[in-house]
Write a protein that binds this DNA or RNA. Structure first.
Lengths: 191, 191
DNA sequence: GTCTATACCTGGATAGAC
DNA sequence: GTCTATCCAGGTATAGAC
């Protein structure tokens, strides 16, 4: 710690607070306080709140792309790679139980606000969907790869929403197992 | 039209606006304008914004109970009754594509706000879960009724979230069919 | 680049006349 | 029960000194 510029710190803090408290409920004062700068100084780095949101989404897109690439090398087979996706529900269990899915909750909030950045935020979803579709194709499910990708994305979203509401670890593990089972069956069908 | 009292009208409008715009993003001015009363008059009926939220949640609980009772009479078998639940995704398709699930999005928002009414809102979820569990038990799945209920609830939540993000009717219909297929398989296993 | 001070607006909430 | 007027807190944004 730390080669980070102030701008980068602002984006990191904003990223976390937007996730934990929601976009609208996070104020400049909240972010400035955590970064340890004055509110005035803030505007030297970002002109508007929308500009911070754009930077946060852009950073999330970059981080997500990096994570997907990591999974490409972590998983030897398409099935293993897709399991990496399913298992983020376990990896991020604590945060998901507290705040839900970072992508799903942001997209839902922006939809209600009818916010201009809606489409940008949606690209986080399409990133996962397209990557999953590629994996399902590699698994031999070229014909319905995109449907399978959407199905899995939907199930993980639903699990995140209910995990957030009920704070139930057992439920998450059971659903993760069920998704892995479902995945294996789809792989067997293809083979 | 209308035998409704002003208080009832306020709750109806607030219910709709909380769904469409979110709780925090809906102001007293928004509600007052749609009801057609002044902001000052507003406080004659509800002292605080939290009080309106309580009233809205309470009304939703009442309406939900009525809907579940209706499904009890609509469906001849437990499987048919559960299908009533699955099909709300089709019935409310347009609204879900625009605003997501009324229950899921409210619960998620209140979680981020760390709002006192979180637990009350969660009762909307438990209402569905418990009703579904009763139906699965009646279907002969006493042993795993609650797990099946949570699974179905999660899937419908996920479909609502992605339907909201992608505005994809075809996806909703495909997932509804898949859920009905899954349900039938569970019923066959029990028989 | 960082600060203080401040303008401006919105939103929740109150008082009091009618 | 309904209104107008008003207060106050908090949030976004700007100006300008250091």
């Amino acid at each position: 710690m730390t080669g980070k510029t102030t701008s980068e710190e602002i984006v990191d803090v904003a990223d976390r607070l937007f996730y934990e408290k929601g976009y609208e409920h996070t104020s400049f004062a909240d972010i400035a306080a955590e970064v340890g700068i004055s509110r005035g100084n803030f505007y030297h780095h970002f002109k508007t709140k929308d500009a911070i949101l754009d930077a946060v989404i852009s950073q999330r897109l970059t981080n997500t792309r990096a994570m997907l690439e990591q999974w490409e090398t972590d998983g030897q087979t398409p099935e293993e790679r897709i399991r990496c996706f399913i298992r983020i529900l376990i990896t991020n269990q604590t945060k998901i139980m507290d705040y839900g899915c970072p992508v799903g909750t942001l997209v839902s909030e922006l939809a209600k606000l009818n916010h201009a950045a809606q489409n940008d935020a949606n690209r986080l979803f399409t990133l996962f969907r397209d990557w999953l579709a590629i994996q399902f194709s590699a698994l031999g499910r070229e014909a319905d790869a995109e449907d399978l990708a959407m199905h899995l994305l939907a199930r993980s979203q639903g699990v995140a929403t209910l995990a957030n509401a009920f704070h139930d670890e057992r439920f998450i593990r059971a659903e993760v197992d069920a998704m892995c089972g479902w995945l294996h069956a789809r792989a067997q069908e293809a083979a």
